[in-house]
């Protein structure tokens, strides 16, 4: 069983990425607060994790929950999201920094849809609920966002 590293190690290794994910999900203005909430929640729960497994995925999962809280608090979500995954998402394997920087340049709806889908691993219905739009609109935002990303990254 891997011992839990000092929490500062998680910050050193993952803070920049978590910030990028949050900028993608809630925009630059909301990202700072969501970042604070993410790391405070992580710090609170950290000792109870017991072992150090996929800490990066764990942090990104918390970040996406905080992004959803952010969207809810702004009254854009009439429907509560019931089935947010509690376990860590599998490690996506992106050349992350670059991808998330490109995500951050997307228009807000597309940005949020892409982030919730890929960092948060949410299905279309929950993205729609988090953004307060119809599943079709969420699907469209995601589609448009990805199209634009592909062009950007090509």
């Amino acid at each position: 069983m891997a011992e839990l590293p000092p929490f500062q190690k998680l910050i050193d290794e993952h803070a920049a990425e978590v910030m990028a994910v949050l900028r993608g999900a809630v925009g630059r203005d909301g990202a700072e607060d969501a970042f604070q909430e993410t790391f405070l929640a992580a710090l609170r729960a950290y000792p109870s994790l017991g072992e150090a497994r996929n800490l990066r995925g764990w942090l990104v999962t918390i970040a996406h929950r905080k992004a959803i809280d952010h969207h809810r608090a702004r009254g854009r979500s009439p429907v509560p999201v019931e089935s947010v995954r509690e376990e860590a998402v599998s490690d996506p394997d992106p050349a992350d920094g670059e991808v998330w920087r490109a995500v951050a340049t997307l228009p807000p709806k597309q940005r949020a849809a892409v982030t919730l889908r890929f960092a948060g691993d949410l299905p279309h219905e929950e993205i729609a609920a988090a953004l307060g739009c119809s599943p079709e609109a969420a699907r469209r935002s995601l589609h448009e966002g990805l199209k634009r990303l592909r062009k950007e990254m090509a």
């Binding site: 011992e3 839990l4 000092p6 929490f7 710090l43 000792p47």
Partner: peptide, 8 residues
């Protein structure tokens, strides 16, 4: 981290 707390 091991002997006191990992909240460091």
């Amino acid at each position: 981290a091991e002997r006191i707390s990992p909240r460091i």
